[in-house]
Design a protein around this nucleic acid. Sequence first.
DNA 1: CCTACCGATCGGTAGG
DNA 2: CCTACCGATCGGTAGG
Lengths: 202, 202
Amino acid sequence: MSPRKSAAEARRTRERIIERSVAIGSVEGLEGLTIGRLAADIGMSKAGVLGHFGTKQQLQLAALHGASGLFSRLVWEPVAGLRPGLTRLRALCEAWIRYLEHERAAFPGGCLFAAASVEFDARGGPVRDTVARMLLRARRLLVNDLRIAVAEGELARDTDPEQLAFEITGLYLALNQELQLHRDPRAPARVRRALDRLLPDS
Amino acid sequence: MSPRKSAAEARRTRERIIERSVAIGSVEGLEGLTIGRLAADIGMSKAGVLGHFGTKQQLQLAALHGASGLFSRLVWEPVAGLRPGLTRLRALCEAWIRYLEHERAAFPGGCLFAAASVEFDARGGPVRDTVARMLLRARRLLVNDLRIAVAEGELARDTDPEQLAFEITGLYLALNQELQLHRDPRAPARVRRALDRLLPDS
DNA sequence: CCTACCGATCGGTAGG
DNA sequence: CCTACCGATCGGTAGG
């Protein structure tokens, strides 16, 4: 029997569980993420894992919030202080590419949001709603800087920010598929070429 | 005890099982497609279902081949006879949009290939390989007509067919996500606008 | 945080 | 194509 842990230790354990959940979820999906497999991976009992979250659904939501925090820290925060508009937008897009390309430790199965999106898109419930909300929030980062770029005259006046954000989203989905399914390392260069055309110097 | 069926009846039963498997797999994924659920849906016993395929993996492969046949019949065959090059390419793209937009009966959870791609991209095995092969085959349809269009002078000489096919793939992935996850009916129009820019009249 | 346990369901098999 | 069954694993709970 393990001794009761302090609140700080319990929090650290919770973080470790979430980190593993994100990694497993990216490979097996958030439904394929089972308590038993997770517990064995971490070296805990099922009840010990579940005690931190209550239900599997709460664990799935915690994994999504963990992945969202990773995106914020690795993609958004490094560029948030740059000049709003085309400058920040380009840096954001580049950071996003690197995130999909290099975060194999956190996401061995590719972007968790791309995976969870198709896994839950035909269901109801809080997991699906959370995935949808987080993806829209990420897209809003694109739309926001696109609007500023148009207002500042950095992009053509007739640019449709929502349209362009949709197309950029497609590039990231294609990038994820190309890296994960086809293991084609040329994909990042393809995205950069497409972005150069979508976001031209005016 | 049901009487033994004729070979023709058995074949029809097999088709019915595959049709349901494609629909369930599009919603629950090909792992979430369980023999028990499928059997209950069809009104058969588990052993009766499994007898047609042997293993779950063979059932998954049969579902993929069924969906591939659907794509051939609904997307490729109607345009295959058109003039190769830009004409056929545009018709192919439009048929592809309608297929994602309207085939809710066959794919209530969205395109089975998009779903299976993220579900299996981090694993090995024949299901993953089959998904990858089928997606590449579909992309080859795009690349093929893009090459012809360039050779015929219908697209700019410096067009990169592989690059353009990659970008079009991204549009379809974004379309699938937008329709399934966000339920946004404006998505098909967005894809058409993007395609008009990617495949301009020269 | 653990052990011990619950009913339900999983993929699959035997035998007819 | 069925019934009856297998061991394994699922999410979750009781109790400490």
